[in-house]
Structures are given as C-alpha cells and as structure tokens.
C-alpha cells in the first residue's frame, strides 16, 4: 500500500552521537552558568519519570539467537505549584503521556564519540504500562531524572541527575501503582549518587546512520563543544558496556 508521501515515517528515532562528563555537585551551578553564557539561553529544566521493563522470556541459552533489550517508558512530569507554592501532588501515572524508548548498545566504532541508535515512539491513547507488559515485558525498576537542557548549534547539552523514589516501607500495604514511584513531593526523591553529582551529556541527533556527511558534521559539532568546555570539564566517550541495554 502506498503511504502518503508527506508523512515523515520516523521522527523520533535517530542515531545519537554523544560525549559525557562527570560533574561534582559543587561544580554544577558554575558549569550551568557558563554553558548558559555560551549558548545564550536559559536552561530548560525538567523532571522525567522512567520505567524500565525487561523481557519476560529468558535469553536464549548459549548466546545464540537474537538479543533481547530492556525498554523504557519515559514521561515528563509537570511540576505545578498552586497559589500557596505547594506542589501539585495529584500524580496520575496512567494518565501521563508515555514514550516508549529502546536504546541500542553503542556501536563499535572508531569515531571519537559514542554512537548508538535510539528508537522511540510516543504512545498517544491507551494504558502504556499495561501495553508494554502485554508485549512480553515485565516491570523492573523506576527512577527519575532531573535535568537542565540547552542547545548550542546542533549540540544538545543536558546536565542531569538520577533520582530514586522513596522506597515503600515494607510493613505497610503499598498503594496500587506504588512500585512505579511517585515524584511528589519532589523533596522525597533521593539522588542515586550519594555525592549528588551530575552528568553532562552533549549529543547530536542524526536521522540516519547511513548519512556519513551528517554524521561527520555531528562529530565535528561535538568536538567543537568539547574544545569550548576544555578547562571546565572533560567530555569523553562513554564506556560502551556501561551503556549496554541488552539482557544478559
């Protein structure tokens, strides 16, 4: 069947080129200010809810067969405050707009940046959580990311921190959906890293991994930004296996 020509088939999925740097908690405010100066924009702050799902089936023994991957549902948490400056605590997990995301393991490459394909699809209507479960996945864990996002040319700069929901006390009977975590009150979220450090990720999205010219432009954009940040932080390639999303 001929698909309408004007429809872009794939809008979210892309090849992601990236560099990373570890930022100690005390360095985060000045670094954010500096990047804000470089980019000439104020950071866009956001909180995202991540649900990690693992395939229910076991991996084929002996290493044969296709790989299985973890998938995530990601949703932006609206941080609303009422007139008294109190947080809006009515968080409805099932009413959130979720995006299903599957990040591939970074490819083996000689490029001076990390390169991986990121596939994602927004789920518009329906119960995304129950849906992913019926695809053959089971809920594994939940976390939140607090991040500040800026743009420098085609480079997306994201300073983020992983936060964990408050563990439910084992004695009490948990409310339905409690395992997925509730972001409110946000003060109850604790950082995964006890030192409260941040990750700076600089990335460029290229639509196709076959498009060598755009890939080179992307790599050069990242190299340029790395140069610019020299002396403030070192942007490096991530350890490939640290970003492995395959089920073992």
């Amino acid at each position: 069947m001929a698909k309408p020509q004007h429809v872009t088939q794939f809008q979210n999925s892309h090849q992601e080129l990236s560099l990373y740097s570890h930022i100690p908690a005390s360095r985060q405010p000045p670094i954010l200010r500096i990047i804000s100066g470089i980019t000439g924009m104020l950071p866009e702050n956001s909180l995202h809810h991540h649900l990690v799902f693992k395939p229910k089936r076991p991996k084929q023994p002996g290493g044969g067969g296709a790989e299985l991957y973890y998938v995530q549902l990601v949703s932006k948490v609206e941080e609303m405050e009422d007139e008294k400056g109190k947080e809006n605590r009515g968080y409805e997990l099932r009413k959130q707009k979720w995006k299903m995301t599957l990040e591939d393991i970074p490819e083996v490459t000689r490029k001076p940046v990390t390169s991986r394909s990121v596939l994602s699809s927004n789920i518009a209507e329906g119960d995304a959580i129950a849906f992913v479960e019926s695809l053959g996945y089971t809920f594994q864990s939940a976390y939140f990311t607090r991040s500040s996002r800026l743009m420098h040319g085609n480079v997306i700069i994201k300073l983020s921190q992983i936060l964990l929901p408050q563990p439910t006390p084992p004695s009490s009977t948990p409310a339905p959906g409690a395992v997925f975590g509730n972001p409110f009150p946000t003060s109850s979220l604790t950082t995964l890293d006890p030192a409260k450090s941040w990750i700076l990720k600089a990335s460029v999205r290229v639509q196709s991994n076959q498009d060598v010219e755009s890939l080179n432009t992307g790599v050069n954009g990242l190299k340029g930004f790395k140069e610019l940040m020299k002396g403030m932080c070192d942007l490096e390639i991530a350890e490939r296996l640290a970003l492995d999303t395959r089920v073992r």
């Binding site: 809008q11 991957y69 299903m100 994602s120 849906f131 019926s134 695809l135």
Partner: peptide
C-alpha cells in the same frame, strides 16, 4: 493491540518491533 491492551502510537513503533523485538514477534 497486544493481547488485550490497545493503544495508539506513532508509526515508529513498527520499527522498534521489527528491529529489536524480532525474536519475540
């Protein structure tokens, strides 16, 4: 529609299943 759960999603869902869930579906 997967099992009993129905959703609407972007077309890219098809790409995810075809490229990364091919061993399952």
């Amino acid at each position: 529609l997967a099992d009993k759960q129905i959703v609407t999603s972007e077309r890219e869902f098809e790409l995810i299943v075809r490229s990364k869930m091919a061993s399952m579906w």
